[in-house]
């Protein structure tokens, strides 16, 4: 059984089907399955995750004066589903074109 560290995965460059850059891997999205395992369902890619790192996109609503700034800061974040990944090695290669990816609209806290 092969293992990888999340820290190893985060920061890898990601390319789309045509070799265009999607930025780097910013985060790994998992879901708890019926069997109680935590399965990777996709990656968040983009240029940086300053705003995402703060928690915007989860339970955190941007405070009154900051809506626009934060939306602008997160404009390049994309969600890359696991089934759309051709090769998770370094660099990560997607099966799809960058224009087919949707923006990352993240989910919140993982209370089990």
């Amino acid at each position: 059984m092969a293992t990888t560290l999340v820290s190893d995965l985060i920061g890898r460059p990601a390319l789309d089907r045509d070799g265009r850059s999607l930025g780097t891997v910013q985060d790994v999205v998992v879901r708890r399955t019926r069997e109680g395992r935590y399965e990777v369902v996709g990656l968040v890619v983009g240029r940086h995750t300053v705003a995402g790192r703060f928690g915007y996109g989860g339970t955190l609503e941007p405070p009154t004066p900051w809506h626009r700034v934060l939306r602008w800061m997160r404009r390049h974040e994309r969600y890359l589903a696991w089934e759309d990944i051709a090769d998770p090695a370094d660099p990560v290669r997607a099966r799809v074109a960058s224009t087919d990816l949707r923006a990352w609209r993240g989910h919140g806290h993982g209370r089990v």
Binding site: V28, V29, R31, R34, G52, R53, G106, G108
Partner: peptide
């Protein structure tokens, strides 16, 4: 089954 969450953040 639960909603997905981000390892990096959560």
């Amino acid at each position: 089954e639960q909603t997905p969450f981000r390892i990096g953040f959560v």
